[in-house]
């Protein structure tokens, strides 16, 4: 086994939702490091290792991205579009993590190549269960090709 560290990225602008997500993530004891960024531009810098993330650990492996769709600066769909346009990045699974149940958002997300679309549950307990189940699935069960 290689020594690469598994990472998970949450792109979320609401501090409340970040707090809930981090709490649920910690409770679930998932084997990964969680990074949180609060807008689309920063998300792109993180993934593409540019700007303040130019020196991000080259050995780390980003296993899944949780992406809110309504984001400041660069919106979620645009982030998704740029991630899926890059052949090296394309295989990193992206889970849309959204408040919207609009058919249009679902259709556009899948058309842009999203790997999963989950509506943030209203119920806090269910919110925690979702983060745990999704984290387990994408970190432990899901397989992706080597970058």
């Amino acid at each position: 086994m290689s020594e690469e560290a598994a990472e998970m990225l949450l792109v979320e602008d609401s501090p409340d939702d970040v707090a809930f997500f981090v709490r649920a993530f910690d409770k679930a004891r998932l084997a990964a490091r969680l990074h949180v960024v609060s807008d689309g531009a920063e998300a792109l810098e993180f993934v593409f290792r540019t700007g303040v993330y130019a020196h991000r650990n080259p050995a780390s492996r980003l296993k899944v991205i949780f992406l809110d769709l309504k984001l400041p600066k660069v919106n979620g769909l645009e982030v998704l579009r740029r991630l899926k346009a890059d052949p090296r990045i394309r295989t990193i699974p992206v889970v849309a993590w959204s408040s919207s149940q609009e058919e249009r958002d679902l259709v556009e997300s899948y058309a842009t190549g999203v790997n999963s679309y989950v509506v943030k549950p209203m119920d806090f307990d269910e919110f925690e269960r979702s983060v745990q189940a999704l984290g387990q699935y994408w970190l432990q069960f899901n397989q992706t090709p080597k970058p």
Partner: peptide, 21 residues
């Protein structure tokens, strides 16, 4: 209604969530 879905859901979830916490 799109903005309602996003903007109202989040604070309501936060109220319930913090009470739970």
């Amino acid at each position: 209604s799109y903005s309602v879905s996003h903007d109202l859901r989040a604070p309501v979830r936060a109220i319930g969530g913090f009470a739970r916490m």
